[in-house]
Write a protein that binds this DNA or RNA. Sequence first.
DNA 1: CTAATCTTGACCTTTCCAGTCAAGATTAGC
DNA 2: GCTAATCTTGACTGGAAAGGTCAAGATTAG
Lengths: 155, 155
Amino acid sequence: MRLSSKTMYALRALFDITFHSHGKATKIDAIAARENVPPRFLEQIFQDLKAAQIVGSKRGPNGGYFLLRSPETITIGEVVRAMEGGVEHHCCFGSDAEVREKCKVSAKCVTASVWRDISVQLNAIMDAVTLSELALRGEALRLTRDSDAGLTYTI
Amino acid sequence: MRLSSKTMYALRALFDITFHSHGKATKIDAIAARENVPPRFLEQIFQDLKAAQIVGSKRGPNGGYFLLRSPETITIGEVVRAMEGGVEHHCCFGSDAEVREKCKVSAKCVTASVWRDISVQLNAIMDAVTLSELALRGEALRLTRDSDAGLTYTI
DNA sequence: CTAATCTTGACCTTTCCAGTCAAGATTAGC
DNA sequence: GCTAATCTTGACTGGAAAGGTCAAGATTAG
């Protein structure tokens, strides 16, 4: 019930491309430095994001990874599902096919049905947040910090 | 982003006590047999549930585990948090204290704030489902199956 | 007393996470 | 066409966590 670092890194990386490059090609090393993510690991992460059709890539000098769609259309939920194989609707216990089948027959699988409902709701929540919202929050945080610093003078 | 088997087993076990014993003392072996859970593992699980003040225990003949409160007051969320240590609000990446501190200072931790919001909502969703609701679903499923079986005769 | 239960805690195996690395394929710009 | 900057592919690894197992002891009903 926790996000893997991989997913968190992926979100940070996508935020970075949105926030610093407005979705345009950005190189791994720059992202890794800004977001404090192991660069080699980030490569692997971007492969997954690319397979999920969330980012595209360009090789060679001035290359990098870029968003394939506009930030308003990329949701947190999509990213999480891409990285973690989705919130698992695993029926009852285990991912074993035979057990799942047996479970269906026994019809005792109440917990699974409840969990399925919950995961649908969770996906809806995550799909309600987009990359552009992340970027907005970034601005907000930054602004807050700046104004905080600026407002140190009180009467 | 998935529930561990331990949590699923815990939910099934609590459902079992509610559904078959109405919350009263039930022995591990009976639950394990009905719910198809490894009995030794179930022992371990009940220790956690007991530590979380969700169940109590009675030793000796006619002993077993029982609900400490009525099923309407025990939520899925509570059980999940007890078993998994809650939905982790882990700030940014890693559970390392130093990193978390640095993260706070940098104020770049947008993803963490978003995830915190999401996890609050998720907990609310899970807290909206109680053990008695599970029991109701159990009845519903059973009824459905029975009537299905009974209606095999069609004209 | 004794048989049925839970209790405690050590132990084990397997899988997966988090991360590293090397060698190759592509492309921009000179 | 060279060369340097990038991504690409895929193998590899150490450590931790998941998922169980087991044995010996403490309690209690009858």
